[in-house]
Design a protein around this nucleic acid. Sequence first.
DNA 1: TAGATATTCACCCAAATGGATGAATATCCT
DNA 2: AGGATATTCATCCATTTGGGTGAATATCTA
Lengths: 114, 114
Amino acid sequence: MDEYPGLDATLTALADPTRREILARLAAGDARVTDLAAPFPISLNSVSKHIRVLERADLVRRRRQGREHFLAANPEPLEAAARWIGEQRALWAWRLEGLDQILSEESRLGRRDP
Amino acid sequence: MDEYPGLDATLTALADPTRREILARLAAGDARVTDLAAPFPISLNSVSKHIRVLERADLVRRRRQGREHFLAANPEPLEAAARWIGEQRALWAWRLEGLDQILSEESRLGRRDP
DNA sequence: TAGATATTCACCCAAATGGATGAATATCCT
DNA sequence: AGGATATTCATCCATTTGGGTGAATATCTA
């Protein structure tokens, strides 16, 4: 559980369509707060808040240049999240394929040659 | 964006440590509400609510058997989430490798042979 | 039938969330 | 200096969330 620090913040940040769109937009290149806010029907302030949530999760990094703040996507938390999900999927797949049942069946039967 | 229906519910459900533990527990096999609740310091009712959130995201499925409700993990939403994350990572990696900058640099310079 | 067990339903509550607005701050430009 | 621009800060508000409790419902069992 503590194997994945920050996973909470990461998934919370990703669990909002506006924030996911912001991240997608940043794939096209760094952008200022105003640029990021432009496509959305909500206020600039609200977008500013969303960005702060993304920053808290370290999904975006901020670089100030005069009065402009440039945001850049940081892939690391995304990779951690992908790892956690992959781990779960592997465990579930294992079960679904019935391999563990077969193995425990074998040990239950007490096979002599290991 | 609508390419990933349910992603909101999926990520929201995953963005809670209790719910992630419940999912992890289900990798070991189907379990009843009471079984799932046992390890947690919170009330059975609260766990029941968490399970409902997981159900809403279709991350778990319920099979009633008399008074007992057996929960099972469903990997599909997790796979969709993994796909979205993978897509983002690919886009960002593309940028970080600088390939798009090189390409846009080329077009900015107006190369004659396309 | 009566009691125990498994689960949800109906509320209550404090804290967080996503939105808004208006004012403050900092920087740029003339 | 003074105005425009970029961004955040401070509030406010309605809704959601994660927790709790007590009562209802359904099922099993003695």
